[in-house]
């Protein structure tokens, strides 16, 4: 039994136009996706900007209303706000935001920021609360004098660690990490990621790791889903995706990773260009009217969004 199941989740935004401002069309930010996250695993959700991955994450935390579909947690569909309140859902599912500066209230001290979820979900005495916040700061390697400082007094990496501390404050089961390190420089990225891994081991937390950086995802995630135009194009284990990519979009993402191999530079360049050419010229082969095909199983854990004929004959 998995921790959380996302079933045919759709999030559409209306486009209004015309004289009477009627709804004329929809932006299909998330257009029917399915996946499950197991307890204690890190599930990677990868895609370009605007592919709907952050929207998916926000819907799972409950910050975005689903148009249709279900998110099943502990046997309850939590797309309804009333269910979430009843379950104290956000005690178990928390979020780490991309922009650490704007996700921490500039007028609040670190102590109050980290204590906010604790105050909302648990009734601790003032001293217990302080002890807990102190512990959390310890876990993410922040000095204890950080308690009474304000967010602007910290560097980007430190702020993101404060964001991590806030997310784990109520000892959640699942944390949605929405591009948690893409705003940080490389050395600090590793530091924050290592803290996240350490916390995962300590509390047995699952992560939904949303990212566009395939290098970071490889370091963090066991199972991956590649998202494009609001739908999943390829789902599989790390092995499946990195060593046996089937969909052109996955290949394109992988080709975009810079390789430290100057001897074969020309070869890599040719490969990259070939993939890009295939992606641009043969859209019809990979997409149906610009929409991603339904997923097909091609291996034990490997799914890819390709038409039936392409699967059997094309390879």
């Amino acid at each position: 039994m998995s921790l959380i199941q996302i079933k045919d989740l759709k999030i559409h935004y209306p486009i209004r136009s015309g004289f009477f401002n009627r709804v004329t069309d929809h932006v299909r930010a998330v257009d029917g996706i399915n996946f499950e996250i197991e307890e204690g695993e890190t599930y990677g959700l990868i895609g370009e900007s605007g592919s709907g991955k952050s929207t998916t994450g926000k819907a799972i935390v409950g910050l975005e209303d689903a148009t249709s579909g279900q998110i099943i947690y502990k046997g309850h569909d939590i797309t309804k706000a009333s269910e979430r309140r009843k379950l104290k859902y956000n005690r178990d599912v928390q979020m780490i935001f991309q922009d650490s500066m704007s996700s921490l209230n500039p007028k609040k001290r670190i102590f109050d920021i980290i204590a906010e979820p604790i105050r909302n979900f648990e009734s601790l005495s003032k001293e217990e609360e302080k002890k807990r916040v102190q512990e959390l700061l310890d876990i993410v390697g922040m000095p204890s004098d950080a308690l009474y400082k304000y967010p602007h007094e910290f560097s980007g990496g430190q702020r993101q660690r404060i964001g991590v501390a806030r997310a784990v404050a109520t000892k959640p089961k699942l944390i949605i990490a929405d591009e948690p390190v893409s705003a940080l420089d490389l050395s600090v990225q590793a530091q924050v990621l290592n803290f996240m891994k350490k916390i995962q081991k300590e509390y047995n937390i699952s992560y939904l790791f949303i990212s566009h950086d395939l290098g970071v995802v490889r370091h963090m995630c066991e199972n991956l889903a590649i998202m494009h135009r609001g739908r999943l194009v390829e789902v599989g284990t790390r092995e499946d995706i990195y060593h046996n990519p089937q969909h052109i979009y996955t290949k394109r993402l992988l080709a975009a990773i810079p390789k430290i191999d100057p001897k074969n530079r020309e070869e890599h360049k040719a490969h990259r260009q070939a993939v890009e050419k295939e992606f641009l010229e043969n859209q019809d082969k990979w997409y149906k009217n610009g929409r991603v095909y339904p997923l097909q199983q091609i291996g034990k854990s490997h799914f890819v969004a390709l038409p039936q004929d392409k699967l059997e004959g094309g390879r």
């Binding site: 926000k58 956000n90 005690r91 935001f97 996700s103 906010e116 909302n120």
Partner: peptide, 13 residues
Amino acid sequence: EREYVMASKASGS
């Protein structure tokens, strides 16, 4: 529109 509002919502406020 700032993210701290969203973070607060996610914290159950």
